[in-house]
Design a protein around this nucleic acid. Sequence first.
DNA 1: GCAGAGCGGAACGATCCGTTCCACTGTTAG
DNA 2: CTAACAGTGGAACGGATCGTTCCGCTCTGC
Lengths: 213, 213
Amino acid sequence: MSTSPKPLAGRRAQAARNDEVILEAARAVFLDDPKAPIAAVADRAGVGISALYRRYAGKEALLRQLCHDGLRRYLAVAEEALAEPDNWAAFAGFLAGVVDADVHSLTVHLAGTFTPTEEMGRDALRAGELATALVDRAHASGRLRADVVVQDLGLVLEACAAVRVPDSERTRQLRRRQLAVLLGGLSTAPDSDPLPGPPPAAGEFDWRWRLRE
Amino acid sequence: MSTSPKPLAGRRAQAARNDEVILEAARAVFLDDPKAPIAAVADRAGVGISALYRRYAGKEALLRQLCHDGLRRYLAVAEEALAEPDNWAAFAGFLAGVVDADVHSLTVHLAGTFTPTEEMGRDALRAGELATALVDRAHASGRLRADVVVQDLGLVLEACAAVRVPDSERTRQLRRRQLAVLLGGLSTAPDSDPLPGPPPAAGEFDWRWRLRE
DNA sequence: GCAGAGCGGAACGATCCGTTCCACTGTTAG
DNA sequence: CTAACAGTGGAACGGATCGTTCCGCTCTGC
C-alpha cells in the first residue's frame, strides 16, 4: 500500500487538514473585516504565516478563492431554492439562505481587493440569471410588489449584511428579523404608494468591482 | 469701528470662511470613508494641513466635532418631526429626515474613533428619548406593527446607510426606496407572521462605542 | 538514517498617516 | 510706512502597519 493504515496522524494528513482550517479561518476573519491583515488569518487558524504562503501565492489569491467559494455557495443556494415548488417560498427561502450563509459579505464586500478570473465572471452571470428567475417566479406568485426589480435584491442583501453585532449567532438572528421586515415591505399590500425614485438599474452596484475602494 | 467696511476680503474673513469650508469637506470625506486620512480633508477643502491643525487639536478632535454636529442634527430632525400632528407622518418623516441628512453615518459609523464628551452622552440620551416618543406615537397611530421596538430604528437606519453608490444624489434616492420598503414592512399588515427572534435589546448596538474597531 | 516537505515566526521593505515645523505672505495696528 | 504677526502651504519626520521573504527547525516517509 502506498498509504499507511493511519494517515490521519501523519504530516501530510495534518497538512491536508490545515487546508480547511486555513480557509475557515480566512472566511471568519475577512467576513469580520474585509481588509484584515493576513497575519490575523494565520493567528486565527493557529498556524504560522508560512502555512498560508505555501498554499496561496499571496493575499490576493486567497481573497479570490474565498470570493469564488462564496459565489459558488450563492449559486448552490439559488439552485436549491429553485427546487422549491411554491414560488414565494422559493424567493423567501433563497434570501434567507443567502443571508444565513453570509454570502453577500463574501462576495460584494471583497470586491476590488483582487482581479477576478473569467470563470468568476461566468458564475456571476449565471448568478444573475438565477436571481432573475427567482424574482420572476415571485412576481408570478402575486405576492411580490409589481414595482420590485431584480436589482432590489442587492438593496435587501446589503441591508441584511449591514447588521452586525459582536456575537455571530445573534447577528444571524437580527439579520433574519431585518429580512422579515424587508420581505413584508416587498409584499403586495392594499392601498400602498408605489416605491419612490427610479428603481436600481442593472450594473448600478458593480462599482466596487472597478478599481480601488 | 474696529471692523473694516469690507471684511469679506480680509485675511480674517478668509479664515472665518475656511472654518466652514473645512467642516464641509471633513463631512464629505469622512462620510465617504470613516478612516480617511486627514490630508484628504485638506485636499478636498483646498487648503493646507496647517489650516486644519490651527482649528483642531488633532484628528480625534475633528471627528468628535463632526459627530457631535451629526448628533445635534439628529435632535433637530427629531424635534421637527415631533411637531407634526399626525403620528405616523411624524414617524415616517423623522426617518426620512435622518436618512437624507446622512446622520447615521455621521454618528454611529464614526464611533470608536474618538473618546466622547459627557455633553455628547447627554445628547445621545435625549436622542433616545425623542426616538422612543416617536415610536410610541407611531404605535398609537395603529399603523406600526405591535412587535416593533425602538431599537429596530437602528436596524432601519443601518440598512439605509448601507446603500451607497458613487453619486450622492442617486444614493439618496436609493436610500429613500429602501426606506419605503422598510416602512412597508414595519406597517401593520393583515395575516402576517410575527417578526422572528428576540427584538434588538437596549444597548445592543453600542458596541462600536467601546474601544477600537 | 536521511532527504526534504511542511512549518513557525523573525526580519525586511514599502506604504501610509498623524503631527510637527518652518518659511512665506498679506494684513493690520500704530 | 513698517514691524509684528495671524494665517497658511506643504515638506519632513517618526511611528505604525502589513505583505512578503527567508532561515532554521521538526518530523515524516522511504
